[in-house]
Amino acid sequence: MAVSRDRLLTVFSLFILFSFLAYADSNFSHYTLRILQNIAIFITLAVSYNLINGIAGQFSLGPNAFLAVGAYASAIFTLSPEEKLRSFIIEPMLWPLSVISVPFAASLLIAGIVTALVAILMAMPVFRVRGDYLAIVSLGFGEVFQVLANNSMSITNGSLGLKGLQPYTNLWWSWGICVFTVFCTLRLVNSSYGRAMKAVREDETAAEAMGINAFRIKTLAFAFSAFFQGVAGGLLAHLITTISPSLFTFMFTFNLLIIIVIGGLGSTTGSIIAAVLITWGGEALRFFEEPANLFGFQYEGIPGMRMVLFSVILILVMLFARSGIMGRSEFSWEGALGWIKNKLSVMKV
């Protein structure tokens, strides 16, 4: 009974969410819609990033690189042959890539698969040995991606980047993918695979003594997370319509790190909440960096100020509030209804 009630409540909330989006789509400003799409993409990224860092406990610094891989993979497949001919002025594009053009949805799938394959290639050397080598290899890959993208003119168009992408990404795509990602991640986490990931996080030796192949489980977590980051990259590419190798800076990864830490490392619910807060709040904090007129004073705006603030927040949370907003607990209808009942009874008294 509780299961069907929960399912009903979930479907109902999704209905509310999508009704709100429908309303927003026709009533909100372009700028607000852009923020809403950013939120959806950041939820997608944060939830999948939390899987490898928070659930499986393997410190990856890869999201920006995976975003880039996904963005390029999907953009290469959606651009029309004519556009490719126009853009690739220094070196023509490699055949058959130059003539292929697929629908947006297919390109997102390709983006996910290519990115997951890249993750598996990275996992092979890294997860064979214990230690925090994933951090450094995934960080290094971000730099190497730029080098490779700049130098493979006939695939990526080098530093010129890819221009003229169709703005396929809209509110429905971004939120649809977002909901899909959250659904898949939650299902995985609640299965035996998710438990095995947590076991590896808690004690790798004990996990292996219980028959868990830590290498495979870590690789699964990493590839799964990369898949959705790649898809998010495809979304992002067709939102901003122009991509270049240097676009996907480490800043993306750092923002995501802050999100999952503030939300509570290991909690999918926390990642969602924090993604909303930080994406929205981050917009609000932009005024630190932009010239503004505050109370009659001309404020010049300081680039980097937001990042100083963010790094201080990250360190402070790590030192003093390690469990973030949610700790490792998750939202459940059971808990939410109980909480509401509790509040109501307090009010009656």
Binding site: R195, K198, A206
Partner: peptide
């Protein structure tokens, strides 16, 4: 004692059955 400290008691036991799924 090497338990998965942050997980529940039942999850600790269920994990050992992972290879049987």
């Amino acid at each position: 004692i090497k338990l998965y400290e942050d997980l529940s008691v039942i999850e600790n036991v269920m994990i050992a059955a992972h290879s049987s799924i």
